[in-house]
Simulated assay, not measured.
Amino acid sequence: MSNKCIIFSVCALLLTTSFSGFAEKTFLVGADLTNPPFQFRNKDGNPDGFEIELTNALCKSENVKCIYVVNNFDAQIPALIARKVDFILPLGLTPKRQKAIDFTDYVFHLPTRLVAKKDSNIMPQVKSLKDKIIAVQQGSIQEAYAEKYWRPAGINIKNYQDPEAIYEDLVANRVDAALCPSVAVSYGFLKTHAGENFELKGPEVTDADLFSKGSAFGVRKGDYETKTLLNMGLDNIMRNTTFSNIQKKYFGDQDLKVK
């Protein structure tokens, strides 16, 4: 091989290496898009909502591309473990989930509340729930609570794949109440025309063994690179005005940050 050819080959290799070094990293993000205003499809069919905007801002701050992979909520963790996605949108850090996957730093906190018709005397207590049908989302911490405390007491628990189906059955009187994240049900249902006859009932429902202090992005066990990158991006949007601006857009002055 001539010296000229050798020089050309080396230069081509250097150019290829240089350009590949600048290639944008892509992450596949698990989402279910059935929980407005946190995540949903907009009128154009694209992912949208509070969590989507936060994730987009986080990815932008770290110069990575994020593509959403849509699946049912209760399929998010299995999809992550099976490497079908690189991380999943925020969910509560429950002890059970922490055995299966890792989490980033906290993103926000959502209290759990019972929602029912305004003229109903129903409360989140076993005695009040006798002979009632209570809706919960599959795979949620609300489902875990209802299955631990309410079903064994003889209360009818009905499981749903997504919140929108729960709201439809509340309006249609197919269930008497639903146990939900309060902020999600307030802005995704109670503030809509369909939910105008419903309200939150009783105090926040809590359980130290089941509920978490807050929600965070889910990552695979041992994936420290992704966890570190997400935490850096989260810290960036928390320190500047990005997080607070997106929060205000969807929830006004309500503060969702974990204290």
Results as ranks from 00 to 15, higher is better:
residue 1 M to K: 13
residue 2 S to G: 12
residue 4 K to N: 10
residue 6 I to D: 06
residue 11 C to P: 02
residue 14 L to N: 02
residue 14 L to H: 05
residue 19 F to M: 15
residue 23 A to D: 02
residue 28 L to V: 14
residue 29 V to L: 14
residue 29 V to Q: 13
residue 30 G to I: 08
residue 31 A to M: 14
residue 33 L to R: 07
residue 36 P to Y: 10
residue 37 P to T: 09
residue 39 Q to Y: 06
residue 40 F to G: 00
residue 41 R to Y: 11
residue 41 R to K: 14
residue 43 K to I: 15
residue 47 P to Y: 06
residue 48 D to K: 09
residue 48 D to W: 11
residue 49 G to F: 07
residue 52 I to Y: 02
residue 56 N to K: 12
residue 57 A to K: 14
residue 57 A to Y: 08
residue 59 C to E: 09
residue 59 C to A: 13
residue 63 N to D: 13
residue 64 V to T: 11
residue 70 V to P: 00
residue 70 V to R: 08
residue 73 F to D: 15
residue 76 Q to F: 01
residue 79 A to V: 04
residue 79 A to P: 02
residue 80 L to W: 03
residue 81 I to H: 12
residue 83 R to G: 08
residue 83 R to Y: 11
residue 84 K to I: 02
residue 84 K to Y: 06
residue 85 V to A: 11
residue 88 I to S: 07
residue 89 L to N: 09
residue 91 L to K: 15
residue 91 L to F: 13
residue 91 L to M: 14
residue 92 G to R: 13
residue 96 K to A: 14
residue 97 R to V: 02
residue 97 R to Y: 03
residue 98 Q to R: 07
residue 107 V to F: 11
residue 108 F to G: 00
residue 108 F to A: 07
residue 109 H to A: 12
residue 110 L to E: 14
residue 112 T to C: 03
residue 113 R to N: 10
residue 114 L to M: 12
residue 116 A to Q: 02
residue 116 A to T: 10
residue 116 A to N: 00
residue 116 A to E: 01
residue 117 K to Y: 00
residue 119 D to Q: 06
residue 119 D to T: 10
residue 121 N to K: 09
residue 122 I to P: 00
residue 122 I to H: 00
residue 122 I to G: 01
residue 124 P to W: 07
residue 126 V to Y: 01
residue 127 K to Q: 02
residue 127 K to Y: 01
residue 127 K to V: 05
residue 127 K to F: 03
residue 133 I to N: 07
residue 133 I to G: 06
residue 134 I to W: 03
residue 136 V to P: 01
residue 138 Q to A: 11
residue 138 Q to R: 11
residue 142 Q to K: 03
residue 143 E to I: 10
residue 144 A to N: 02
residue 149 Y to Q: 05
residue 153 A to R: 06
residue 154 G to F: 01
residue 154 G to M: 03
residue 154 G to W: 03
residue 154 G to Q: 03
residue 158 K to T: 15
residue 159 N to K: 14
residue 164 E to A: 15
residue 166 I to E: 13
residue 167 Y to H: 06
residue 169 D to I: 05
residue 170 L to E: 04
residue 170 L to W: 01
residue 171 V to T: 09
residue 172 A to H: 11
residue 177 A to P: 08
residue 178 A to I: 01
residue 183 V to A: 13
residue 190 L to I: 03
residue 192 T to R: 02
residue 193 H to D: 12
residue 198 F to R: 04
residue 200 L to S: 09
residue 202 G to P: 02
residue 202 G to T: 04
residue 203 P to N: 03
residue 204 E to M: 08
residue 204 E to G: 05
residue 207 D to C: 03
residue 208 A to W: 09
residue 208 A to H: 07
residue 209 D to I: 13
residue 210 L to M: 06
residue 212 S to I: 14
residue 215 S to W: 12
residue 216 A to T: 04
residue 216 A to R: 07
residue 218 G to F: 10
residue 219 V to A: 08
residue 227 K to P: 06
residue 227 K to R: 15
residue 231 N to G: 05
residue 232 M to F: 10
residue 233 G to R: 15
residue 234 L to V: 01
residue 234 L to E: 01
residue 236 N to L: 11
residue 236 N to R: 15
residue 236 N to G: 05
residue 237 I to D: 10
residue 240 N to T: 02
residue 240 N to C: 03
residue 243 F to N: 00
residue 245 N to C: 00
residue 245 N to E: 04
residue 246 I to V: 07
residue 248 K to N: 10
residue 249 K to D: 11
residue 249 K to E: 13
residue 249 K to Y: 07
residue 252 G to E: 01
residue 256 L to G: 02
residue 259 K to M: 06
